[in-house]
Design a protein around this nucleic acid. Structure first.
Length: 923
RNA sequence: GCCCAGGUGGUGGAAUUGGUAGACACGCAGGACUUAAAAUCCUGUGGCCGUUUAGGCCGUGCGGGUUCAAGUCCCGCCCUGGGUACCA
């Protein structure tokens, strides 16, 4: 081939890889395994843009590198195919979401293959495929059939719980269960009807139905999980979200809260990712304290992390939703309290957001007694106390809590200072820890010491216990939508949910006529005709949320076509956990938490061999759009080049970035793109029309979407791959711009030119390489290998450029050098590497080539040029043989003319010689 | 408010973790080839002073500090991005 034709080369090798199943990976005990995973995409109608492949290319480089290193690499791809957009489209057009989804997947696959990603497509999964969701339903069934035992600290079969109830009741059972679970003995249990037992067991199951306060999104007609709501609006579509109580399936993730936090330190994840999960789970240590209500036979239990400030309590607060509000309100305050509670409950999430920091509350008329002081303090109701956290009751210490302080100041409640140093402060909450004052028996202690002392005291006296609290709530698992996995549950006459037997799985989605809720407000599945279990029992009508299918797909890849198990024991054992997982940070508190939860559960049940699914996690940054802006005179069809805009009164106009190159507008293309302006005038500078730019989200609206297909068409997939890596560190968010892409394209042409001259004649010869040639090669081998281990691909691309430039300068066309260089380069630019590899006479794919070993002896220097400094300022450079001793170097430096001049006759105080680094002479 | 991450030329970004700041690339300027353009190749390119040369001074958000030596470590600020928010 005379010149490098990327289209031909790339098409040829992509076909070769697919036809020969080059990337197929199956259990092979003779080879070490390596599992590289990408977060699988939701196939949207818009197709991939140039930002998506960033992570895919990085993981592909690692996969290909590891293959050359002799690993058996599992590198799969699939599609998170259930979801809202396809359903919304179905509502508008009537087209079944399965069709839309299949079309979108086809497009995605074509695009992914065009980038030359080395996936084993035989392992592809689609979450909407019944063969796949059969096992999603199966995992749901397993969760339904288990409870969480805090004593053994793992999930156990519900049978063990039933056996325990039959013998001893639930008193001694330390289980994760609903807060309102009654305490009973064996006799009570054994007397219960079958339905009564079933009902009670629901309080223990790891997935269970409950009336939960949920995020209801009227526009989408469904509930959303906490992580799907951003600032009171739905993450998808940006519709307002309100709080509503509804019957929902829940997942008892709180049972795993402690292990989900604890295991984080075993993982190789970024600190910020771990922080996000830690904060989301929100583990806090403290205690529960009982406060007797004055004149009533009721005690209120509050949770606090600061029992040391107990002597500073001046009032107590109840959440408006608290169940005892009515009972604890005195007659004279009833009207006021009820009005306040009504208002607080009806307020939407968004109103609460906007009113944050405004103080509001109301006095109940009741008093409680501080168990430490026997003091009588007033009981208030205020919406700054959340019903869902702790016990919904707070002991208020205005002197050390900002909110309590604001509230007390506003309502004229007393402030009692209990920490030394706060006495003279206007705002005592500025100091939160220190020596205790005015605090009975803990006076003089340090606050951390006092925490323990008060808890000990409360436990001894029987009005308190140490307690760990979590911010995380059980996850809502129901969606009032059609396009999701049906929940494998039916209801018997008594209204109790029963599990569908495993032999009935998958429970497939029934066809429906319209993808909307029924007239009576039931989810779309309510429209399915004759959709009943055994012809009479109603199925659950909600479907599973998007995260159901994505919480275990990484396990399915290991054994994707197994129809007897979700993954075989052998495959699960062999592939173990994911060695490298690449994806965006947006999944920190959703997907990555739920997956860890399900994986832990499956581990407890013995189905997988590892506690944590993702050993190493890397978050690729987002690629933002780089919009181009042209300036136009306000009332004329005249455009002004950016440099001249100051002279005129101009308006901004977004122009399609695909007709702008390096900020220079292609005027002819513009006229075609915007026919309205085909006769417009253009005022140029230096014969060019320059645009300004702005960094914005990549979106059709700003005409800044760059499609990888277009880049591949123009430059080729290898250039796209290398350029995306060259753009900067993988974790960094950066705007897409093509400013430097010519540099990468040029590099590939130079590489080609090492193999072929302009007429297509091979230049490669079998000569013995010179020392410098070896040096250039081995420096690259070393650097690139280190870079891939650290995932800093941008510097590798630079290194390749340096190497090829050096070989060009040396006029080196030696087979021995070029061959090895190709292997090192092949993960980055696989198509051209394969082509040139073949041109050297190899018949097997470069995938099977052995990665060249780095040999230090080639890059060893026998002398080193020391920068020599005087008082820390660089003055000259002197070369020394490496075996020179520091003493000899020092003597020679002091003899050097330049240094002598700087010493100016004075003798140095000391001379610092750092081998292979620097010499510093201190005067 | 709290918790992270970051701030280096005209631009994207390097810097072996305390040791020659600005690798590599883009852009720009000049040159070669060409009737011309494209492509390709060569040279220069942080700022200031110095006519040139030699050279010098200043420079990694700002202000201090530690050190023979600081982009890197410590203290105090300022800005940008991400997460989270009445979580007791």
């Amino acid at each position: 081939m005379a010149e490098y034709k990327h289209k031909e080369v790339e098409r040829k090798w992509q076909r070769y890889w697919a036809d020969n199943k080059i990337f197929e990976a199956n259990v092979d005990h003779n080879k070490p395994k390596f599992y590289v995973l990408d977060m699988f995409p939701y196939p949207s109608g818009a197709g991939l843009h140039v930002g998506h492949p960033l992570g895919y290319i990085a993981s592909d480089i690692v996969s290909r590198f590891k293959r050359n290193k002799g690993y058996n690499v599992l590198h799969p791809m699939g599609f998170d195919a259930f979801g809202l957009p396809a359903e919304q489209y179905a509502i508008q057009t009537g087209q079944h979401p399965a069709l839309t989804t299949a079309e979108n997947i086809k497009r995605y696959k074509d695009q992914l293959q065009g980038i030359g990603l080395s996936y084993d497509w035989d392992k592809e999964v689609r979450t909407c495929d019944p063969k796949y969701y059969k096992w999603t339903q199966w995992i749901f069934s397993q969760l339904f059939s288990c409870w969480y035992n805090y004593d053994s600290n793992k999930a156990e079969s519900i049978e063990t719980l039933i056996a325990a109830f039959e013998k001893k009741g639930n008193k001694k059972i330390n289980a994760a269960c609903d807060d309102d679970t009654p305490i009973f003995d064996a006799a009570y249990w054994n007397r219960l009807s079958e339905a009564g037992k079933a009902k009670l067991l629901l309080k223990y199951r790891l997935t269970y139905p409950a009336d939960a306060l949920v995020n209801w999104c009227p526009a989408l007609g469904t509930v959303l999980a906490n992580d799907e709501v951003k600032d009171g609006f739905s993450e998808r579509g940006g519709h307002p979200v309100e709080r509503k109580k509804m019957r929902q399936w829940m997942m008892r993730i709180t049972a795993y809260a402690d292990r989900l936090v604890g295991n984080l330190n075993k993982l190789d994840w970024s600190a910020s990712m771990k922080d996000m999960q830690t904060n989301w789970i929100g583990k806090s240590y403290g205690c529960e304290l009982d406060f007797e209500v004055y004149d009533k036979d009721i005690a209120l239990t509050c949770f606090t992390t600061r029992p040391d400030t107990i002597f500073g309590v001046t009032y107590m607060v109840l959440a408006p939703e608290h169940e005892l509000v009515r009972e604890l309100t005195t007659e004279e305050h009833r009207e006021e309290v009820e009005a306040y509670v009504q208002k607080a409950i009806n307020r939407s999430e968004r109103e609460r957001m906007s009113e944050i920091k405004t103080v509001s509350g109301v006095f109940t008329g009741s008093f409680v007694i501080n168990p430490f002081t026997n003091e009588k303090v007033p009981l208030w109701i205020a919406d700054y106390v959340l019903a869902g956290y702790g016990t919904g009751v707070v002991m208020a210490v205005p002197s050390s809590d900002d909110r309590d302080f604001r509230f007390a100041t506003y309502y004229g409640l007393p402030v009692k200072r209990v920490i030394a140093g706060t006495e003279d402060l206007k705002d005592p909450t500025e100091i939160k820890h220190g020596k205790m004052i005015n605090s009975g028996f803990i006076t003089g202690m340090d606050s951390s010491e006092a925490v323990h002392a008060t808890i000990d005291y409360a436990e001894k006296e029987g009005f308190g216990t140490a307690k760990v609290n979590y911010r995380i709530r059980d996850a809502v698992f129901s969606r009032q939508r059609y396009w999701g996995e049906p929940v494998p549950v039916y209801f018997t006459e008594d209204g109790i949910p029963r599990l569908l037997p495993e032999s009935e799985l998958p429970l497939e989605l029934p066809p429906i006529d319209e993808y909307l809720p029924t007239k009576s407000g039931e989810p779309p599945l309510g429209r399915a005709k004759k959709w009943l279990y055994k012809g009479k029992y109603a199925y659950e009508l909600t479907t599973m949320p998007g995260w159901a299918g994505s919480s275990w797909y990484f396990l399915r890849y290991m054994d994707a076509s197994n129809d007897r198990e979700f993954v075989s024991k052998e495959a699960a054992e062999y592939w173990n956990s994911v060695d490298l997982y690449i994806g965006g940070t947006e999944h920190a508190t959703g997907h990555l938490l739920y997956s860890r939860f399900w994986n832990l559960f499956l581990y407890d049940r013995g189905y997988v061999t590892h506690e944590e699914p993702f050993q190493k996690l890397v978050n690729q940054g987002m690629i933002q759009g780089r919009s181009n802006i042209a300036y136009k005179l306000k009332d004329e069809h005249k455009f002004i080049s950016a440099g001249l805009k100051k002279k005129y009164d101009v308006m901004e106009l977004h122009v399609d970035v695909n007709i702008v190159h390096n900020d220079i507008l292609d005027v002819e293309a513009f006229k075609k793109w915007m026919p309205d302006y085909k006769d417009a005038e253009f005022e140029l500078e230096d014969g060019k029309f320059r645009c300004d730019f702005a960094i914005e989200k990549m979106s059709k609206r700003w005409y800044n979407v760059v499609n990888p297909d277009d880049v591949i068409e123009k430059y080729g997939a290898d250039t796209l791959r290398m350029y995306e890596m060259f753009l900067g560190p993988i974790e960094l968010s950066k705007p897409w711009n093509t400013h430097g892409i010519d540099g990468v394209a040029k590099f590939l042409r130079r590489l080609w030119a090492l193999f072929y001259d302009a007429d297509g004649k091979s230049l490669v010869n079998a000569g013995k390489p010179k020392a410098e040639e070896y040096k250039a090669l081995h420096k690259t081998i070393q650097k690139v290998e280190m870079d891939i281990e650290n995932l800093s691909f941008n510097t590798s691309v630079s290194e390749f450029m340096i190497c090829v430039n050096a070989l060009t300068q040396l006029n080196c066309h030696k087979k021995e050098i070029l061959e090895k260089l190709l292997i090192v380069l092949s993960p980055f630019a696989p198509h051209i590497a394969e082509e040139l590899w073949q041109s050297l006479g190899h018949e097997e794919s470069i995938i099977h080539a052995e990665y060249p070993e780095f040999d230090e002896s080639y890059i060893k220097e026998d002398e080193y040029e020391f920068p020599v400094m005087v008082n820390g300022k660089m003055r000259t450079k002197i070369k020394f043989a490496l075996d020179k001793s520091p003493g000899e170097i020092e003597n020679e430096v002091l003899e050097n003319d330049v240094i002598k001049k700087w010493l100016d006759g004075k003798s140095p105080k000391k001379v610092i010689v750092v081998p292979k680094k620097i010499v510093n002479v201190v005067v």
